[in-house]
Amino acid sequence: MFEKLIQKGLEKSAWLYHLNTGSCNGCDIELVSVITPRYDAERFGFKIAGSPRHADIIVVSGPITSQSRDRLIRTLAQVPEPKVVVSLGSCPRSCNVFNGSYCVEGPLDKYAPIDVSIAGCPPKPEAIMAGLVRAVEILKEKRRAMK
């Protein structure tokens, strides 16, 4: 009975969980600037959630350093279905300049399938928002697949 409403809900209110796996914080402050008055992602319903249990979209930023590797895996497992993994910037996609360093454990898709990757180092807030809007569509498809 609520299926149509749930689909609308998923589209209109996706909550982000920001996972920083060793990023240089360039992408982190860009992500935070997305919810400032100028770009205001909240008008689309995006809100940064405090715990992975509340999250729909997991925004990963930073090359997966060896310290944050198993924490990343554990936190990604704790997010309820349907979930979408978004890689912010080049680092999670391909470890960027840190490629091949002794403490970087390789791109994100070794541990979780990346649904949307937003390129840019750091990506512009508008790019992040376009990426998130794209991620919401994938979220709805996953929900339909889950049903």
Binding site: S51, P52, R71, L72, I73, R74, T75, A77, Q78
Partner: peptide, 13 residues
């Protein structure tokens, strides 16, 4: 033992 059902420790085991 499955990480999904562990209590959230902000990543720690």
């Amino acid at each position: 033992e499955d990480a999904k059902y562990d209590v959230f420790y902000s990543g720690e085991s």
